[in-house]
Nucleic acid binder design. Structure first.
Lengths: 186, 186, 186, 186
DNA sequence: ATTTAAACGAGACGGTACGTCACGTCTTAGT
DNA sequence: ACTAAGACGTGACGTACCGTCTCGTTTAAAT
């Protein structure tokens, strides 16, 4: 039995079914199995319903990723170095143990051919980075230093993600955190 | 005028024309403008000629990518921080001013859906990183520090590439280099 | 300007444009100029639209052919010989002066490689022959004789079509009709 | 072991291998399985060897077809009706029990797109018809009647071939022969 | 006896068409 | 207004053959 309209308003069941189908497709078949047609088929949704809410394939990808947003634990270890370590540990664990890793990589790949995806991704990235930088700034470094530190930490994490090295070990993380925090001054 | 067969053997002119067309397309229009059809049109080649030698779009991409292997200048400024700055400056310039940047990004994107592309990319990346680390090690840091430094520098550069920020300015580069070198000790 | 979808239903304009383009191509360039690509180009239609409704080139050919089903005038001259003459005269004129001749020949050619085309053609042929036989039977011959007469008349006509002799002249037609009618008895 | 050149002259083994491969392909797979590539593969011949001796696919088809020229038995039953029956019986048997039927149909199909095939076919057809008419004329009918009779007989046979009804039965053949002979006078 | 000439197999070449897939847009019919 | 459904034009995918071309080999005929 098909889902029907519930009147002049967005049907949350449809949204949920679409996002679920999208997430499962990415997890099961990777980026190449992820197409609007396939999502529509699996979610028993009409293509226009998808396009109405997500302007293109990339935005749907971003939406799937955002669902994981809240999957990450926050951190407050008391020291800057501890925070950096916690951030990295959490992030790698998150990428390893949820479908978030593949999804994130897919977004990155998509961004290379789609300027809008690139912009959307940049915007999302910017927001997250700002929050991370704010967290680091609590430890008494300048905003500029916090931003730079964030950039280095995040770029390091991306590099590991893209190279499929999501389990660097605590020692490696500690070395990286130590190096960056030392570099940022004091 | 038209390229013809030179017998029962691969015609190097065709190969060259196809690789050139592929490289130019990537540089001019990015990954989304890169299709076998478009390459065939620009190279004045038949599609079967391309498929005869490169089994699919990804492999042609990898072939283009291999052509850039030795495109970067070396550096020797006398100090570690100077070397890091030179490395970054050279790399950003190389990415900005040759078709290498777009091609690299395309490979990276493609790697996310194609395991073979991923492996080829990882191998290439590993080799380049080793050479860079060796250059940094000349400045009197341990090999482990040189490797870590390289990783951070390279990941920073990749992050900028992926974010389309290939012209960070000397000041930014100096800040990054300073921070990383300070972090590495001394 | 361009034809668009009219919803989840077949667009009759597209169907018409495709059939028209197909018919014209056959008339202008013959069977060798008739390809799905060429039809799509001329009809300003997408290939998938054609394949959605006609599973292959042969079936599109058959569809064009069916359009001529009712193109022939009937006849009632009062005598059997007159009817045979009228049938042949009409048929040759129809084949000469409409695109039906080339289309019919194309179907026939296609039937030699495609069993489905062959079956469809046989069915069509059978129906037409039955109606022609019924017309002849009005002149007081047995049904068996009417069928045989029809078969001979039609095969003669096909032979002339295949041999590109569509204008045999009234005298030749009279000779053929006379011979066949005499043969059928009385 | 491959066939080699035997010097600056046509290698009859190659010619034979090519014609055999072509005939077998037509018999086994019909016109749609008949391609220069397939013939070359089966005959272990190079494509240029084929194109050297037969300018195109159609001419190779015609060459295969000519091989059957003399495959038919002659007839002399003593009566005109007997001769017509014998002609038809022989012809249907020939078409049924040799690869000639499929080959003839293929030629016919090809003739619809290739004017040269059409001309060659017409010429062959004309010659055979003349000989058949001469045989009929021995029974004391005028040349004009013999030609007309031949035309009707042959067109009937072609009709049966094209409709895949190559085994009409003796009774049907007798009816046809009787009708035509009666029509021709006497 | 050596050279020349042409046929041979092989297979690459630039093309055209095939039939399939997904894109993003559009309209319908129903809730 | 929003839904599922599905048609539309576009254009790339990877494959099959087309007819042409050149390669390197082989061998008979002409020197």
């Amino acid at each position: 039995m098909a889902r029907k309209s519930i009147g002049a308003q967005r049907n949350p069941e449809s949204e949920k079914a679409i996002l679920t189908a999208a997430r499962e497709l990415l997890a099961e078949e990777g980026l190449s199995g992820f197409s609007i047609e396939a999502v529509a088929r699996r979610a028993h949704a009409g293509k226009p319903t998808i396009y109405r809410w997500w302007p293109d394939r990339t935005r749907l990808l971003l939406a799937v990723y955002s669902e994981f947003k809240e999957g990450m634990r926050s951190f407050d270890t008391g020291t800057l170095e501890g925070d950096v370590r916690a951030f990295l540990t959490n992030l790698f664990e998150f990428w390893r143990e949820s479908p978030a890793g593949p999804v994130f990589k897919s977004i990155l790949a998509e961004s290379q051919s789609d300027p809008e995806a690139s912009a959307a991704f940049a915007e999302y990235h910017h927001g997250r980075a700002a929050r991370t930088a704010a967290a680091f700034a609590r430890r008494g470094i300048t905003d500029a230093d916090a931003k730079l530190l964030t950039e280095m930490v995040v770029n390091y994490a991306w590099g590991q993600l893209l190279a499929n090295r999501l389990d660097p070990g605590d020692a490696e993380i500690a070395r990286v955190a130590g190096m960056l925090v030392r570099g940022v001054g004091r």
